[in-house]
Amino acid sequence: MKKISVEEFYRTKKKDFSLSVITNPKTLEKDITSQYLNRPGLAFAGYFERFAYKRIQILGETEISYLQSLKEEDQYNSIKEVLVYDIPCIIVTKGLSLPQQMEFLANEMTIPLLSSRLTTDKLYHSLRKYLGEVFSPSKTIHGSLLDVFGVGILLTGKSGIGKSECALDLVERGRCLVTDDVVKIFAQEDVLFGTSTNEYGHFMEVRGVGLIDVEKMFGIQAVRKQKRIDVQIELMPWKDTMDYERIGLGDNFVDILGVKIPIIYLPVSPGKNVAVVIEVVAMNHILKLYGYDAAKVYTQKLQKDLQKKAKLRHASIEGGE
C-alpha cells in the first residue's frame, strides 16, 4: 500500500497549501495512507458509524463553530472521543483558531494538527488532486516520451533500436521532449501521464557522443515536464514475417496500468525517416479524434465503387442476353 508521511507532505506542500504546524513536530511522523478526505462534523456530534478516521480530517468553519457552541466539558469530551481514533492528520482551514483543548489533546494522542490559510473548498480540491497524484498507480518503463503536435507519443522498443536518435530527430524538427530512456507513468481517472524520473533536467544519451543537455541545446521550447500519453509506438527491426498494419482499419491497443491506448508497431530499417512517420501518426491521431478516419473513408469509397460497378456489369449482362 502506498503511503506518505505527514512530515514529507508538510515539507513538500507547506507553500502550496499555506500550512503551518500547531502540534509539536514529533507528531508529524504519522503516515497518510488514504487519498480521500473526511469532514468529521458528525463524529464530533457523537455519530461514529462509518467514521472514516483513516483519512485526513478537514475542519472548516462548520466544525469549529459547532465545537465552540458546546459547553467546555462537552467540548472536551467531544474532541477526545474523536481523537482517540488513529487519525493520520487533522487540518483546520482558513487559519481558524481552535478550541484550546484541541491542541492539547492532539499532542497527547500524537495526532498531527496542521493549519491552512486556504478556504475549506480550495484546500479540499487542491488536496484531493495532490493526494490523487501521490496515490495513483504508477510504474516506470524503458522508452521516450514526446509531445508531437500536442499528442503524447510513448516511444518504446529494444535497446539500440534508435529511440533516442528518433527523439532527437523530433526535437530538431521542433517537437518537445518530455523524457528519454526512463518514463514514469501514472494513471489518473483513465488518463495516462508520463514524466521524467530524473530531477537534473532533460539530459539524454546519444550513442557514440555521450550525454547531451537537450534544454540547453535546443531551448526551453524543446522540453516539457509532463504530458498525457495518447499513443504508444513500438519501434522494431524490419522482419519479413511480421504482419505490419497496411490499411489501419483495426486499431491495436495496449493496456498500461489499466488504461487502454492505441499502439502502433513501426518497423525501422536503415535510412528510413522514423521522425516523419511519427509526426504522421500524431496528425492521424488528431484527425481521428476530430472524426476523420482516412482508412475508413477510403475503404468506404472503394466499397461503394465496387458495388456500383458490379451492378452495372450485372445490368449489361442481362441487357445483352
Binding site: 519479413d240 514475417t241 497496411r246 490499411i247 482499419l249 475503404t299 472503394l302 466499397q303 465496387l306
Partner: peptide
C-alpha cells in the same frame, strides 16, 4: 466474391504475395 476486392481481400492478397 460478391463484395469485390475491397480492403480486406486486398490486404490478404498483399500479405500473401509479400511472403
Amino acid at each position: 466474391n460478391k463484395l469485390g476486392m475491397h480492403a480486406r481481400p486486398a490486404t490478404l492478397i498483399v500479405k500473401a504475395a509479400s511472403k
